[in-house]
Amino acid sequence: MSDRGYQPVIDHTNPVPLYRQIMDDIRSQIDAGELRPGDQISPNVELARSYNVSLITVKKAVGELIRDGYLFGRVGKGTFVAGARNGRGREAKGTIGLVLTDFGNPFFMQIAHHIEADVSRYGYNLLFSYSSNDFEREENQIRHFQEIDVRGLIIASTEYTNHVPEIVRELHASRFPYVMISFVDDPTIHYVGTDHERGAFMATEFLIRNGRSRIGYLGAEKGNPLGALRRAGYLRALERHGIEARPEFEFTFPAPRQDFESGFAIGEAFCRIAERPDGVFAYNDQSAIGFERALTAGRLRIPEDVALVGFDDVVYRVPPPVPLTTIHQLTDRIAGLALEKLNRQIEGALFEVRTILEPSLVVRDSCRNHHSIPTTEGIT
């Protein structure tokens, strides 16, 4: 159990269920101060060996203690004594789960950071999982969270098409508390996110107001609802300003990649075009940074030859050659509203099914500000 030499003992002849005896034993160690807030308990396999019980029995005991707020777990890290985690110890209301795509997605990691910082206000422990962009693994993680009786889930799905995963429809049908923070195209699904069409419109209009007339779109594959929304904003801005939309100025990522490498590959091809756009709106910052690097390698100047605007405004490990003008998503508010929406579901209170936030424009060197743009603020 700990490094203090404690030898767990349970009575196999006692009519009290074995998992209950294990729970009582661990709770007694916490009450006695033998296990302190933040201490890691032994892995389930070792506990099963120490108590001389099945692994299923240990998992049930640990799951109950997590649900009751005595313990909290982190996928890939282990199980720990609650208290230091949320400042409330055994008074916690239980555990909620956060399902993320992977460690490498800076947008969702930024949201996760805010959720981890704010979850204590609601009295919950927090359990993370990362699917590594494996949809089957994501589904298994969600089912595991349900098995250990987490109170609710916040989900950033690895479903690249942005359609609603079947497992989420199951949560919805069973009234299990959940909130999506990755875009889904179904207005009945619980969701917090950004007005993507509006953000794309703002990005494209800013390029136009900076004197660009041949504007391209670096976008997601066809059939992607989020990509369709951002493309719609791009097209609406062109129409608003009387600029013809030219299909040859739209560059599509190979599905399902919308990353640095895809942006770089498109940028290399872009450099070879005779009549190319003088301004580009990119689907996201990852692809925009790859696109920038290819253009600078091809001796095109940003913004003199090509102005560029991205979407997301998060910090990446590989910085852009030229600081990127981009659309800012309110990751702190997305996190806060997701927690609030989830907590209201858990408590049986009324909640807003779908919350859409207004984005804002952050001006940097990749598209210089020659004209004023009205300030926008987040709204729910």
Rank of each mutant, 00 (worst) to 15 (best):
Q7Y: 03
P8Q: 03
I10A: 01
I10R: 05
P15F: 06
P17F: 05
R20H: 12
I26C: 05
R27K: 15
Q29L: 14
D31S: 12
S42L: 14
P43K: 11
R49P: 00
T57Q: 09
K60M: 13
K60L: 14
G63K: 11
L71S: 08
K77L: 14
T79E: 08
F80Q: 07
V81I: 15
R90W: 02
I96Y: 07
L100C: 11
F107R: 04
I111M: 09
A117L: 08
A117H: 12
D118M: 12
N125K: 01
Y130R: 07
S132P: 00
E139V: 14
I142N: 07
Q146Y: 01
E147T: 12
E147S: 15
V150K: 05
V150I: 13
T158R: 03
N162Q: 11
H163F: 08
E166I: 09
V168T: 08
R169I: 03
E170Q: 15
L171P: 10
H172D: 15
S174W: 00
S174M: 08
F176I: 10
D185M: 01
D185S: 15
T188L: 10
T188A: 14
I189S: 04
H190G: 02
G193C: 07
T194K: 04
T204N: 00
F206D: 05
F206M: 04
G216E: 02
G223H: 06
L226C: 06
R231D: 02
Y234S: 02
R236T: 03
R240D: 09
R246F: 00
P247A: 13
E250T: 12
F251D: 04
F251R: 06
A255N: 10
P256R: 13
E268S: 08
I273W: 06
A274N: 11
G279Q: 00
A282L: 03
E292K: 01
G298S: 05
G298A: 05
L300A: 03
P303Q: 07
V306F: 01
V306N: 01
A307Y: 00
G310C: 04
G310N: 04
V315E: 11
Y316A: 01
R317D: 14
P323E: 05
I327S: 02
L330I: 01
L330S: 14
R333I: 08
L339M: 08
E347C: 06
L350F: 07
V353L: 00
L361R: 02
L361S: 06
R364K: 15
D365S: 13
D365R: 13
C367Q: 06
T376L: 14
T380R: 11
